[in-house]
Amino acid sequence: MPIVKRSKKWSWRSSPKTPSFLRTKRAPAYISTLFFASWIGTYLDLYFVGNGWYHFPHRPFPAIFSIDLSFTLIGLPLFVTFFLYVMARLRPWPRGLFLITMSLFMTWIEKQAETIGWFVHSSEWKHLYSFVGYSLFMAMVWRFYRWVNLH
């Protein structure tokens, strides 16, 4: 009778309900980058809202917060998770093109949010500012992720 031994390379998988990016050794880098992105997004919103560049007419707890916390605490981390997931799988040139594409997409989303009434820019705002801002923000988030991933 043959005896079957378990391979030393075999190990138990994490729960299939756990997202794959959290089952890797990169999970701390993802999580810390999501906190970093939310923190930067919150402070940028506070700065721009405080200076009157834009405002959020419909937001949770308007008497307490001048910014839309649902975006900075839910929407932004979801977007950054998708962004990091794709960026980690691309080569350098496609990464740059993806970053530019996502900056254009976020600028378009911002304009759509304005037409719905979720977001209002001042009359001096140019959407080129949004494109440049999102490009810089995503480049900074990507750099932070790479830095955390190396340490």
Rank of each mutant, 00 (worst) to 15 (best):
residue 53 W to V: 09
residue 134 Y to K: 02
residue 119 F to E: 01
residue 102 M to Q: 09
residue 58 H to P: 06
residue 108 W to E: 07
residue 82 F to L: 14
residue 52 G to W: 04
residue 113 A to L: 14
residue 118 W to M: 10
residue 72 T to F: 01
residue 109 I to Y: 14
residue 136 L to R: 01
residue 57 P to Q: 08
residue 57 P to N: 02
residue 86 V to E: 04
residue 106 M to G: 15
residue 92 P to G: 07
residue 98 F to S: 04
residue 132 V to I: 15
residue 88 A to M: 09
residue 80 V to Q: 02
residue 50 G to F: 03
residue 121 H to Q: 08
residue 73 L to T: 04
residue 132 V to F: 12
residue 90 L to Y: 05
residue 78 L to R: 01
residue 69 L to C: 04
residue 110 E to K: 03
residue 126 K to G: 11
residue 63 A to C: 09
residue 95 R to C: 08
residue 72 T to D: 14
residue 124 E to F: 13
residue 103 S to N: 05
residue 55 H to A: 12
residue 70 S to M: 12
residue 135 S to F: 12
residue 109 I to Q: 14
residue 82 F to M: 13
residue 90 L to S: 07
residue 119 F to W: 13
residue 74 I to W: 01
residue 75 G to S: 12
residue 84 L to T: 02
residue 133 G to I: 02
residue 104 L to C: 12
residue 52 G to Q: 05
residue 97 L to V: 08
residue 78 L to Y: 00
residue 133 G to V: 01
residue 72 T to Y: 00
residue 85 Y to K: 11
residue 106 M to K: 09
residue 81 T to Q: 01
residue 76 L to P: 02
residue 120 V to S: 12
residue 134 Y to G: 01
residue 102 M to P: 06
residue 69 L to Q: 07
residue 51 N to R: 10
residue 92 P to R: 05
residue 122 S to P: 06
